[in-house]
Every structure is written in structure tokens, then in C-alpha cells.
Amino acid sequence: MDEPQNDPKVIKRRTNLTGFLRKEAEAQGFDLCRITLPDAIPQAPERLQQFVDAGRHGTMAWMEETKERRGDPRVLWSDVRSIVMFGMNYGPDEDPRALQALPDKAAISVYARNRDYHDVIKGRLKEIATRFAARAGADVKVFVDTAPVMEKPLAAAAGLGWQGKHTNLVSREFGSWLFLGSLFTTAELEIDEGERDHCGSCRACLDACPTDAFPAPYQIDARRCISYLTIEHKGVIDAALRPAFGNRIYGCDDCLAACPWNKFAAEAREMKLKARDDLKAPDIAFFLTLDDSGFRTYFSGSPVKRIGRDRFVRNVLIAAGNSGSAALVPACESLLDDVSADVRGMAVWALARLVLPDRFAALRGEHLPREVDGTVRAEWMMES
């Protein structure tokens, strides 16, 4: 039988356990730690269903397959009584959009310029969970973007921030730069109030999107989002969208960086989340030379490694085609014979923008007759 919630002993226990969690979170380098109930996001299932029904999840079939568990934490784990949301600041030391003025450089999303945050945060959460479970005598589960958990709505319900018009979490203290993690527990804890929306009439994030990926405020169509297309999407990227990618080769920070609340943001404290010097403004030319072994070595421990060399070089070739740099032509030409059809196809697209028509016609005459992949053949013919 459950103990009365207004029993002084129960209240004191909740208070002590909550205080213990907050101290542990601070000791592990988290900037925010707040708590909500598992039934705090009642509108999530309907909104998720609408998103999937509209096809805005693109090729992320797992979103449809897990929508019941994703929409309701109690379906994921029926025994959960409290959900603890953690936030860790990963703010950059400068506006990442400045890199767009350097077309021969590659732009990698701020979150991926050092260690994989999943590893950093999950390790810290497991340490907190172990000590908390021993103290509370309760069951716990931790999640960091690796299970069907709607972290942003739960974080808003817990008061870490609110979901802005770009659908991402915005914090009054840290702007748009927060990594999230969660701890589900059977323990009863003190519940925090949610954060109200502070976007007002601002639409800076919507107007900043290079590919117009927001059908309306608070709605996103992943099929037009550069982050989705460069990271999650396999195969051919819509030719009509490629010019808008600019030099963005892994993710996009434009809608995040445009938010006025970033004026309160601070640089990340965690060294593993601060940008590596060689990933702040890397050369497109260098990335075009990476084979599979070189790619895996260079991005060891990085989230970039997850997409694999072929998808990565596909993205880099789009940036090369947008660069206008003739210096990249030899590297692009060498990739016309790459083992990956995705790479060969984007090499065709890049060269169509970097060489004179006569040179492109000569390349087509040399490579098209022996090309067996229909998608690559289509790229050659499209650029005729």
C-alpha cells in the first residue's frame, strides 16, 4: 500500500532524495536538473501521430514503429513515478554561422565538434543512477537519445526551458545549447513547475532556415531539414535543396544560433564538449581525401563517425559543389570512380558546378558509358 503523500516522513524523504539528486547532478557537471511526472505530456501522442501521418519524419521509420512508447513514458515503463531531466550546456565560443562566409571550409554542427555527447552524458547519468538507486531503494533507468523518449517535451514540462518555434528546447539561462538526458525512477520526488513559452512574436529561427523546413511555427518537416538530410537520410538528397546546404556537411545550427535568447548563453564548461581546433573550420579539400580507414580514425569518438564515410563524403561533395572553388576539382574528379554510388553521384553534381561545360562533357563521355548505377547515370544526364 502506498504511504499517504502528506505524511511528514514521506514529504521529508521526497525532499531529501530530490536534494541528493540535484547535488549529484551538479557534481557530474550538469547545468540543470529538474523533475516532472510521467503523465506531464498528454498532448505528445496526438502531435507525434500528426507528425508521422504527414510524413514529416522522412525515412526515420523507427519514429512510427515506436510512437506508442515515445508518446507516453508509462507505456515505455509502466512503473515509472518520477522523471528527472538533466541539461548540460554545450554552448559554442562564437556564432557558428560565421563559417558560412568561408565556402572552402566545412561546417560541422556545434554538437559534433568533439566527443559524442551520448557517451559523455550517459556515463555521468549511470553514475548518478547507481548512487541514487542505492540511496532510494528504487528502480531506475537512464536514457540519452537512445530510447523512445520525447526528451524536449519532458524537459519543458520539468522547467528546463520551452520548445521554441523551431521545435527545439530554449532555456532562459543557456539559450538553444542544451544536451538532454533523463532518469526514470519508481521513487516519489518533488515535482518542478514547467516553463512557459517566451518566444512571443519572434520568428528569427523560422526565417533563418536555409531550406524552409518549418511549415508553420512549432512544426518541422524533417524532409527539408539539413540536419536530418546530412545525418539520418541515406541515399540521394533532393537536387533542389543541395544549393541551400552551402558548406554544411554534418548538421545545421542556423535555427538554434538565430535565437535571441542565446544572448544569455555561456560557453560549455565540459572540455569534452568544447570544439576540437581541427573541427572549427576544417578544409573541404582534406575531407574529400578520406577513405574509410582515414575517416574512422579521424572521427574516432565523434558522433560524425556514426554516419559512415560514404554518407559523409556525399555531404562534403555537396559543399564542394557549392564552394565555387576550382582547387577542389581534382579531388572531385578522383571520386568519380569511388566504390560508393552515392559518392560518385555527388561527385558528378559537384563537378557540374565547378568545371566549364566542355570539361564536364568530356568527363561524361569518359565515365557515363561504364556507369552501372541508375541513380548515378541520372545525375550525369540531369547535368547534361
Rank of each mutant, 00 (worst) to 15 (best):
K12P: 00
L17S: 04
G29T: 08
G29H: 07
F30S: 14
F30H: 12
C33A: 13
I35Y: 02
T36M: 01
A40W: 01
I41H: 01
P42N: 05
Q49D: 14
D53G: 04
E65W: 10
K67N: 09
V80G: 00
R81Q: 12
S82G: 05
I83L: 02
M85K: 07
F86D: 06
M88V: 05
Y90P: 11
L102A: 13
L102R: 15
K105Y: 08
K105M: 14
R115I: 07
D119Q: 12
K122P: 00
L125Y: 01
K126C: 09
T130A: 15
F132R: 03
A133I: 00
A133K: 02
D139C: 02
K141L: 12
V142G: 05
V142L: 02
A147M: 02
P148I: 05
A155L: 01
A157R: 01
G159W: 01
L160G: 09
H166N: 15
T167P: 11
N168Q: 14
S171V: 10
R172S: 13
E173G: 08
G175W: 01
F179Q: 09
T185C: 02
T185E: 00
T186D: 00
A187W: 05
E190P: 09
E190N: 11
C199V: 04
S201K: 10
A208C: 05
C209Y: 02
T211E: 03
P215D: 11
A216E: 14
I226D: 04
L229T: 12
I231T: 12
K234H: 13
G235T: 01
V236D: 14
I237C: 09
R242H: 09
P243M: 07
A244S: 14
G246F: 03
N247H: 06
R248F: 01
R248C: 03
I249K: 05
L256S: 11
A257F: 04
W261F: 12
K272N: 12
K274I: 12
K274H: 08
R276F: 05
K280F: 08
I284M: 03
A285I: 07
S293W: 06
S302W: 13
V304K: 07
K305E: 10
R311V: 02
G321D: 03
N322W: 04
S323C: 06
G324D: 07
G324H: 03
C332T: 06
S334D: 09
L336K: 06
L336M: 10
D337V: 15
S340K: 02
A341H: 10
V343P: 06
V348R: 12
A352Y: 15
L354W: 14
V355F: 09
L363D: 03
R364H: 07
R364L: 06
E366V: 13
L368I: 06
P369T: 01
V376E: 06
E383F: 15
